[in-house]
Each structure stands twice: as C-alpha cells, then as structure tokens.
Amino acid sequence: MVPTQRHSYLVLALLLFANALVLNTAFAQMQPKDANEILKPVRDNFNQIKDYTANAHINVNVDFVRIPDKDATVYFKQPDKFRFKAEGFAMLPKRGVNATVMQLLQGNYTAIYAGSANVNNTQTDIVKVLPTDANDDVILSTFWIDAKHQIQRVETTTRNNGSYNLDFNYATNPFNLPQQIVINFDVEKMNIPLGLSMDLDSFGKKKDDKKSTRGVVTVTYANYKVNTGLSDSVFK
C-alpha cells in the first residue's frame, strides 16, 4: 500500500470512530433516566438524618386568616415524629413541613422519569411518584430533583385534601436540609355560625360562595442541629 493511501485509511478510521463516539453519547442522552436511581440518593441522604431541631420563622398567608409572623422551634425524629413549639399560638400546614414528602419515598411506589426542566434557576430531573397502596391519600406526586440530589419542587395531588405544592430553597445546611419551604395548598373556607362569631355586623349579609381557597405558608429555617439524639418525650 502506498503511504498516502495508508494515511487516508487512518484518517477515515479515526473519523468513523469519533462519529461513533459522538453518536453513542447523543444516543445515551436520549435514553430515559432511571427514576429510582434519581430518587435513591435523595432517600439515602434523608435516611442519614435520625433527628433534627431547627428554628423556624413562619409566615401564613391565607385568605380568611390574619396571623402575624411567628418564630417556632421544630423537632423531627425518624421515621415520622414531628412537633413544633412557639411562644403563644402558631400554625403550620399538616402536609409538606413535617417530612411527609420524604415519607412518601419510604413507602411503596412506582417512579417514572418525566424529563427535565429548569426550576428556581436550576436544571432538574422530573420524577413522577405513584404510591401503590390503594389506601394512600396521595394519588400522584411529582418531584423536581437537581444534580445535587436536592428536591427543588414537589407537586402533590391527594384524594381527600386537595393539592399542594412545595418549593424549596437551599443554603449550606447539613444533609441538604432546606433553608426555606414555600407551601402552596388548598384550604376550605370557613363558615362560622353566628352563635360562635357573635358578629352581628355580618348578619343578613351575602357571604362569599367559594368553598375553598389557596393558602401560602413560608417557613424559613435556621440553626439546624442534626442527629443530637432527641428524646421521644419532646414529641408528647
């Protein structure tokens, strides 16, 4: 073979190899990711947390409730113990704040990869989680998880309690614990009997016909203390 011809074959072979490499990579990217592989590090990270205590600043924004911002102390212990204490009266949504989201991932479910999206200026993978337990109140939960295995957003639809969304913000807290959670949820409007409210000013006035409204609660955390060996007596 003439040297120039050898060179030509070599270049062609190199070109074909490079092409194959590029095509292989592109093809690999087009394949759907394994949803369980995306959820696993999130779940493993959470399982490292045996308990935590944190200061929480609570802002409640619900149509028919006026309450000032409150400071509370929140306590959590695996698997599902949650308590919060404040000076005076405080309220927190039942869903979203007390690790109900992570409890969903501890149960039995089917996870489906549903693409990727940019959320909170972060590229995330979308995973849809369907509990397999027919008695579970959750019908469907959608997770947006970033490359650091942090949950950026959750949207959940339930059978009996409407739907709720959680948006997470992170700082440098241990075990990917959030700096802030914004919970957006359905809440039923209250129809307060006159005998309880004694509000004669509203007697005979037409009331709003809407049965439910949306509420937003923002909880900002600080001073996490993780795995300190919290006693069960804290939750009584």
Binding site: A86, F89, A90, M91, L92, V187, K189, M190, L196
Partner: peptide, 20 residues
C-alpha cells in the same frame, strides 16, 4: 369544644401549637 368547632376546617389543614 366551641373553639374546636370554630377552627375545625383549619385543623384539617394545619397543626396548631399553643392554646387559644
């Protein structure tokens, strides 16, 4: 009992801490 009745809807959605 009266307070519980008045706040029942809220209690379905919220956990309370403190005594009103």
């Amino acid at each position: 009992t009266m307070l519980d009745m008045a706040t029942q809807n809220l209690k379905d959605t919220f956990d309370f801490s403190g005594n009103l």
